[in-house]
């Protein structure tokens, strides 16, 4: 299996960390993985994205042309990448920030009010992890335990509270049924 996910949103939403958590989980599960961020002036307050591949095969091109999944955290990102998804691809979108419906009918769209949920949980910076939870649930890339294990290793041991919050939001996303 090969999972090719594009994470996209504004700078500061934790797009790169969301992608890193998936790449990290893949690495722990002995998959081949790559994590390719956009860089340069693009990153200065504008849009931000990263391409994450998790595969049983060696990763050839790390650039994703036809993503099997999209995590979109703002409207411009959904506009930009919706058309690129493979038929049957999964779009996990933050419906707090993206109001429109999908234009395509051959993809599965999962609307998660991640920003609202995170705000209500008092963890406004962790909307990204809610979407990661939902992504893993809907793609079946990893079990929840595998994901949890990866994030536990990824968050510095010196910040137990941050880890706890990350796991809470992951779980909220994983269990969210919209």
């Amino acid at each position: 299996m090969t999972f090719e996910t594009i994470f996209a949103g504004f700078g500061g939403q934790g797009i790169l960390f969301a992608g890193k958590s998936i790449a990290y989980a893949g690495m722990i599960e002995n998959k081949n993985v790559s994590h390719l961020p956009s860089y340069g002036p693009e990153m200065r307050g504008g849009t931000c994205n990263c391409h994450v591949i998790v595969s049983d095969e060696p990763v050839a091109s790390p650039i994703i042309v036809e993503p099997t999944a999209l995590v979109a955290m703002n409207a411009p990102s959904f506009d930009k990448f919706e058309g690129q998804l493979v038929p049957g691809g999964k779009a996990i979108i933050d419906s707090t920030l993206i109001s429109r419906d999908a234009e395509r009918t051959d993809i599965d769209v999962y609307k998660v009010p991640a920003t609202d949920m995170a705000n209500k949980m008092g963890l406004p910076k962790l909307a990204n992890m809610i979407l990661v939870g939902k992504l893993v649930k809907e793609t079946g890339m990893f079990t929840f335990e595998e994901l949890k294990g990866a994030v536990t290793k990824l968050v510095p041991a010196s910040k137990p509270e941050l880890l706890e919050n990350n796991l809470k939001t992951l779980e909220a996303g994983y269990n969210y049924e919209g």
Binding site: K20, M27, V33, H35, L36, P37, Y39, V59, P62, I63
Partner: peptide, 10 residues
């Protein structure tokens, strides 16, 4: 190149 520089892999 910039891509190899910025990319993460195990």
């Amino acid at each position: 190149d910039g891509m190899l520089g910025q990319m993460m892999e195990p």
